[in-house]
């Protein structure tokens, strides 16, 4: 059997320690993944919500206003984390896709599918907050700035993956096709970002000066870092919750899901 799509050969046993292998095998088992993700969510979700609340209150209420932009800059506490995590989310999705293609791990498929809608939502959030921020800063809702344009293309890439998944009737094949597409997207993202950057530097209109580097005060940075960390955690939580739903849907005819539902009804 020839596997032309192998980008990397399967890792030989000697590279990964044996207990690591058993960990991988467990990762591939739906019941184990379902229970471990439940355990992770039980402590990660409250921490995420608390961190989000602290970061927001700290950033919005307890930092000094910017000397040029006044209070409007505070939207960065949503805008920056969502754009950072949206981009990272695409890579998580593509890597999960690679794992599913190379090692044929079904749960990697599930993880990839779980990423796409969250990533698209975060990209959309980044675009919306960016445009709200743009109104007082640049005087217009939409500017074809390099970063805005790149985010827009990222949204298209996410929507492409979601649309491809929906178009297939056979969901196993859909997962594989999306894995290939997200890998293609992953290779292309740096190229797209660099081209758009370059395109913008070529066309930069004189009216918008964004080149003068506005240094940000460290007191404003700490809540930003907290928010970025909290958004990463939020992404993880949403991904795990999506995965749990998808695991239950795929395994709905198996014994362990039936036992689980029975137990929950009688608790």
């Amino acid at each position: 059997m020839r596997r032309a799509y192998y980008l990397v050969p399967p890792l030989p046993n000697c590279i990964i320690a044996p207990d690591m292998w058993s960990f991988f095998h467990k990762l591939g088992s739906p019941p184990w993944l379902y229970s471990i993700s439940g355990a992770i969510l039980r402590w990660l979700l409250p921490i995420t919500l608390v961190a989000l609340a602290i970061g927001l209150v700290w950033g919005v209420l307890f930092t000094a206003p910017d000397f040029r932009q006044g209070n409007s800059y505070r939207i960065i506490y949503i805008h920056v984390p969502s754009s950072v995590v949206a981009l990272a989310g695409y890579y998580v999705m593509a890597l999960a896709g690679a794992v599913s293609l190379i090692w044929k791990m079904k749960m990697a498929d599930v993880a990839m599918q779980a990423c796409a809608p969250i990533g698209a939502a975060l990209t959309f959030l980044a675009l919306i907050t960016g445009s709200i921020w743009g109104k007082p800063t640049w005087g217009t809702w939409w500017v074809w700035d390099a970063r805005v344009t790149s985010m827009l293309i990222l949204l298209f890439l996410y929507l492409g993956v979601i649309a491809l998944y929906e178009a297939y009737d056979n969901k196993v094949a859909a997962g594989k096709a999306c894995a290939v597409l997200s890998l293609v997207g992953m290779v292309n993202i740096p190229i797209i970002y660099k081209s758009v950057d370059w395109w913008y530097s070529l066309h930069q209109p004189a009216s918008i000066k964004f080149t003068g580097e506005s240094t940000i005060d460290t007191s404003m940075l700490y809540p930003l870092f907290l928010m970025i960390a909290a958004f990463y955690a939020l992404f993880t939580c949403c991904m795990l919750m999506n995965m749990r739903v998808e695991i239950l849907r795929r395994e709905s005819s198996t014994g362990w899901v039936k036992r689980l539902l029975f137990r929950q009804e009688h608790d």
Partner: peptide, 17 residues
């Protein structure tokens, strides 16, 4: 229709250069 959604974002660098 789907193919344009998948491929157009990848075409953008070519268009730019």
């Amino acid at each position: 229709m789907l193919i344009s959604l998948l491929i157009l974002p990848l075409y953008m660098p070519v268009l730019i250069f």
